[in-house]
Computed example of a mutant assay.
Amino acid sequence: MASSKKSKLNAKHDYKQLLEEKTQSLVQKNTQATTTTGVFAATENEDFEEVYEGPDTSGAAYLWLLFFSTLMFTLPFLTFYAVKHWLENSFGVTAFENNCISVFSAVIVVNLIICLYVIKAFREDTQPLVVRKKNK
C-alpha cells in the first residue's frame, strides 16, 4: 500500500517536472524565435522585462455564460413538457405522478447543465502568458 502511494507521488512529481521543462523549452524557443526574426531586435545594450499576463478571455467568458444561461432557461422547460407529454400518452399515470416525474426530470437537467458549466470552467487555460516589454 505504501509503495503505491510513493509511486503515485513520484508520478505526480515526474509529471510536474516534465510540465515545467516543456514550458521552459517553449518559452526559450519563443524567445529565440522572436529575437532572431527581428521582432524585438534585441541587442546586448537593451533591457527587456518579462511580464506575465493572462489571456484576455472576458469576451469568451461572456459568450459561454450566455450559452449556458440559454440552456438553463430552455432545456428544463422542454424536458418538463416532453416528459409530461410522453407520460400522458404512453403510461396511465395520475396527474400528480406525472407532474412529480416531469419536475424531477427538469431538475436533473438543470443539475447536468450546472455540471457542464463547472467542467468547462475547470478546463479553461489559466496559464499566464510571457510578454517581453522593453524597459524605458
Rank of each mutant, 00 (worst) to 15 (best):
M1N: 12
S3K: 14
S4R: 14
S4P: 03
K5Y: 10
K6V: 07
K6L: 09
K6S: 12
K8F: 06
N10I: 15
A11F: 11
K12T: 09
H13Q: 11
H13A: 03
D14N: 14
D14F: 03
Y15P: 02
K16F: 11
Q17L: 15
Q17K: 13
Q24G: 05
Q24V: 05
Q24P: 05
V27F: 03
V27K: 13
Q28C: 00
Q28W: 04
Q28P: 01
Q28K: 01
K29C: 00
T31V: 04
T31E: 05
T31P: 00
Q32D: 08
A33E: 12
T34M: 13
T35Q: 03
T36L: 11
T36M: 08
T36F: 04
T37Y: 02
T37W: 02
G38M: 04
G38A: 00
V39M: 03
A41Q: 06
A42S: 08
T43I: 02
E44C: 04
N45D: 11
E46D: 05
E46N: 05
E46Q: 15
D47I: 11
F48P: 04
E49D: 11
E50D: 14
E50H: 14
Y52F: 15
D56E: 15
G59Y: 14
G59W: 13
A60S: 10
A61H: 10
Y62P: 01
Y62S: 14
W64H: 02
L65G: 04
L65T: 09
L66T: 10
F67Q: 09
T70K: 13
L71W: 12
M72F: 12
M72G: 02
M72L: 13
F73S: 09
L75F: 07
P76R: 07
P76Q: 10
T79D: 01
T79Y: 00
F80P: 05
F80E: 06
F80R: 04
F80K: 10
A82V: 15
V83Y: 01
H85C: 11
H85D: 12
E88M: 13
N89F: 08
S90M: 15
F91D: 08
G92I: 05
G92D: 12
V93R: 09
T94A: 03
F96H: 12
E97K: 14
E97M: 15
N98Q: 12
N98D: 01
N99H: 14
C100N: 07
I101F: 10
S102F: 06
V103H: 02
V103E: 01
F104M: 11
F104S: 07
V109N: 00
V109H: 01
V110R: 12
V110S: 05
N111W: 05
L112H: 07
I113D: 00
I113N: 00
I113R: 04
I114F: 07
I114H: 05
L116W: 11
L116A: 13
L116Y: 09
Y117I: 03
V118L: 06
V118W: 04
I119R: 14
K120E: 10
K120Q: 14
K120M: 07
F122M: 09
R123N: 12
R123P: 01
E124Y: 00
T126K: 06
T126Y: 07
Q127D: 11
Q127A: 08
P128L: 08
P128I: 01
V130I: 08
V130C: 02
K134M: 01
K134S: 02
K136F: 01
